[in-house]
């Protein structure tokens, strides 16, 4: 019989992740199964709920597959949040591969009831500001910055900025009204919400150094749905998920960086690359964020320090 997989996500249909990652994946499983297994994709939260609720929708079987960010549900996936720590991941490729391996080692407990098909981090996140150029940590002092994740919220606070949380669609309005002075985002997202038109300054970080921040994505499947598949279809899912899919997604995210950056250069915005020597200060200042993560893992009965080291090692291994 024919299997239809209901796939739900929050992006508009033409955004990068659904067209470049999800779409080809769906085409591939359809082709390999001779169209016996197909996706039915529902973009833009068409089936209802909030992006934060996607993870429960896939867990509860409301949908079969969800493409979302574990970080939207703060506090729920603290182990995998290690990849959202500041200055840890250095490219989407390395981050994505490392995240998948780390999940195999430490993450399965917190994803009980969910079958991850892919983990991926996005391209390096940078600082974008409206009126004040950020060259040093001192420049961040007192700036109201939109934080995209719980970790960046903590990072900004420890760097001396005032973190503000708001949904992404609200950012253009907020930055144009001065409700916020800037935001942290990777290049891929910026043109899709025309944010390059709202700011003048972009502060990137030394490319040899780890990224200021990245966020973690997940393609998650309902385990009961997976179990209900006949063996050959299960094999198709297995073949097309896990380390391979994660690596491919990371590569696509890295490749999307240039296209996302171009509109800002075309517009003549001002760019600055924060040098490694200055970044050392930032890393030092963000130490409490690490300590907190380690302490929380220790409290949960894990060896936080060891886990952090493993995450670093995996990232280093995958960097080559």
């Amino acid at each position: 019989q024919e299997i239809t997989l209901k796939v739900h996500h929050f992006w508009p249909p033409a955004a990068m992740p659904p067209t470049k990652i999800l779409g080809p994946w769906c085409d591939k499983i359809a082709a390999e199964s001779n169209n016996r297994m197909k996706c039915q994709v529902f973009p833009a939260m068409q089936l209802g709920g909030t992006p934060a609720q996607l993870i429960d929708q896939v867990k509860d079987g409301v949908v079969d597959i969800a493409f979302t960010l574990p970080g939207y549900t703060a506090g729920r996936f603290p182990v995998m949040e290690v990849f959202e720590l500041p200055f840890i991941s250095s490219s989407a490729s390395a981050g994505s591969k490392a995240a998948w391996d780390f999940y195999g080692k430490y993450g399965q407990k917190e994803f009980a009831g969910i079958k991850p098909l892919m983990f991926a981090t996005h391209d390096d996140g940078y600082v974008h500001t409206r009126e004040k150029q950020v060259k040093t940590m001192a420049d961040l002092k007192g700036l109201k910055m939109r934080a995209p994740t719980r970790m960046t919220n903590k990072l900004l606070a420890s760097l001396g900025a005032t973190p503000v949380a708001m949904p992404l669609p609200a950012v253009p309005e907020a930055v144009s009204k001065g409700v916020i002075d800037g935001f942290l985002l990777p290049w891929e997202v910026i043109p899709s919400v025309k944010l390059h038109e709202m700011v003048k300054y972009h502060s990137e970080t030394d490319p040899t150094r780890p990224a200021l921040y990245t966020a973690l994505f997940i393609l998650a499947m309902n385990p009961a749905k997976y179990d209900s598949l006949p063996a050959d279809l299960k094999a198709i899912i297995d073949r097309n998920s896990g380390a391979g899919l994660s690596a491919m997604a990371g590569k696509i995210w890295d490749e999307s960086q240039a296209a996302g950056r171009k509109p800002a250069t075309d517009r003549g915005n001002t760019f600055y690359t924060i040098p490694g020597a200055e970044l050392d200060n930032w890393v030092k200042a963000s130490a409490p964020v690490y300590d907190e993560w380690v302490a929380n893992q220790d409290k949960a009965g894990n060896n936080g320090k060891q886990m952090l080291q493993d995450a670093r090692d995996l990232l280093a291994k995958n960097r080559q």
Binding site: D56, T73, A74, G75, A147, N153, P163, V164, A165
Partner: peptide, 13 residues
């Protein structure tokens, strides 16, 4: 049960 919190205030969801 999932221990979800809000992002800025960390209040229980």
């Amino acid at each position: 049960a999932a221990g979800e919190t809000t992002m800025i205030l960390g209040a229980p969801m």
